[in-house]
Amino acid sequence: MSRTFNVAVVGATGAVGNQMLEVLAERNFPVNQLRLLASERSEGSFLEFRGEEVMVERLTQDSFKGIDIALFSAGGGRSLEFCPVAAKAGAVCIDNSSAWRMDPDVPLVVPEVNPQAIAGYSAKGIIANPNCSTIQMVVALKPLHDFARIKRVVVSTYQAVSGTGQKAIDELRIQSGELLNGRPVECKVYPHQIGFNCLPHIDVFLDNGYTREEMKMVQETVKIMGDSGIRVTATTVRVPVFYGHSESVNIETEVKLSAAKARELLAAAPGVELVDDVANNLYPMPIDAVGQDLTYVGRIREDESIDNGLNLWVVADNLRKGAATNAVQIAEILAARYL
């Protein structure tokens, strides 16, 4: 790629924003000018990019002049307000929030699954990055769906606190220390203690008894896979892990898919690392996924309770493949094929 691009990172000082800068550098994305944007409390601070210090600017209505690609990770409210502003200024927005994901005019993209959807960016100048848990699941499901068509998915997630942000990371660290020293803990980020505990509660509860996080997985999976016939049910759980989301995924397929065939398909799938050797205690774990961009799949076994069922264990770094890396991968395809 000989052309270079002016890139803005919105929410640059946050956990995902920092990862976006790392991934842009690691993958040698052709950045000409880099503009770092954040709230006024971060204005004037500096972040490093490719060995140079870049000053953080305050996000305003005039921040996107001359920008080609804007990577957003500043929350849904900021995305709803500023993505149209950026698009009007000529930038293509790749948004990490949930604000635009289910908009029918906005493509929802995982490059290993539906890269062709990126072409739809021109409708609004926005591409949505899916939920972190959805991303890693559909990367694993895509090759299986293409072979045997998935009818139903039952997923339970075990999600790291970094999915909530830096304050949650700090809360788990502080609570762990307090508990190990026999002292009471204070709960500020979560409604209950997260240290040495599991919370079956991510985002707000809805009228149907599911949380918003669970319904994101239901709705986003169908949109990304492009098959309205897939039925999905999810239970999402916050666990006392700093980085890396894990998922127990049960699928039912139209035709028989053996565990051996599933391993063969996944071993050849883009973005997947098969780790499935239980005889030697090898299976995916979040500590191995941290800092990596692959989706790790293991514990593959046939579900003996139904005819065409399969169980999987899926793990990925939620800040990288679940957010920053997926966004940069979208930007790479966008830059190479469409800009």
Rank of each mutant, 00 (worst) to 15 (best):
A89S: 13
Y283W: 04
V297G: 10
D293G: 15
E264W: 08
K65I: 07
W100D: 07
N114D: 10
L319D: 03
A260K: 14
R320G: 02
Q116P: 06
T235D: 12
T134F: 03
F147T: 08
M137L: 12
V278I: 13
V239P: 01
M102T: 06
Q61Y: 12
E254S: 11
P284H: 07
L257G: 07
V138C: 08
R299P: 09
E213G: 09
R149A: 11
T236C: 10
K188D: 10
G165Q: 06
K321P: 02
G177V: 11
A316S: 13
L339C: 10
A15V: 15
E178I: 04
E254Q: 13
V241N: 11
N6Y: 07
A89C: 05
A260S: 14
S2L: 05
I230E: 06
S133W: 02
L265E: 12
A140K: 02
S122K: 15
I69Q: 08
Q166P: 00
T235M: 08
L257H: 02
S133D: 14
I330P: 03
E252C: 05
V204P: 04
F196E: 15
A269V: 05
A8Q: 13
F72Y: 07
A260E: 15
I169S: 06
A168K: 05
A267G: 13
N181S: 14
N96D: 13
D146I: 00
V297I: 12
A87W: 09
V241K: 03
R320S: 02
V153L: 04
L36D: 01
L36P: 00
V278C: 05
W313T: 10
R27I: 01
I224Q: 08
V10Y: 03
D103T: 03
L266Y: 02
T233I: 15
P270K: 05
T211E: 07
M215H: 07
P200G: 15
A117K: 13
Y190L: 15
F49E: 00
E40W: 02
P84M: 07
A119K: 06
G271C: 10
D276H: 04
G163M: 06
Q219I: 04
F147S: 12
E247F: 08
E186R: 12
E213P: 00
E57H: 09
D307W: 02
L266D: 03
G182K: 10
F64G: 12
K321M: 05
G195R: 12
F64D: 04
G182I: 07
A128F: 04
A279D: 10
N308Q: 12
N96F: 00
R299F: 14
D170P: 00
E26K: 01
F49H: 00
G226V: 13
S39K: 05
S97V: 02
R301H: 14
L310H: 08
L274D: 09
S248C: 10
R50T: 02
G309D: 12
C93F: 02
A336M: 07
V189Q: 12
K256E: 07
R50W: 00
L282Q: 09
R35F: 00
P115N: 11
M102F: 03
D317P: 01
T233K: 12
A335I: 01
G51E: 09
R299S: 13
A38T: 01
L282E: 09
A335C: 13
R263D: 11
L206A: 11
Y338T: 09
T236M: 06
V138K: 08
Q193P: 14
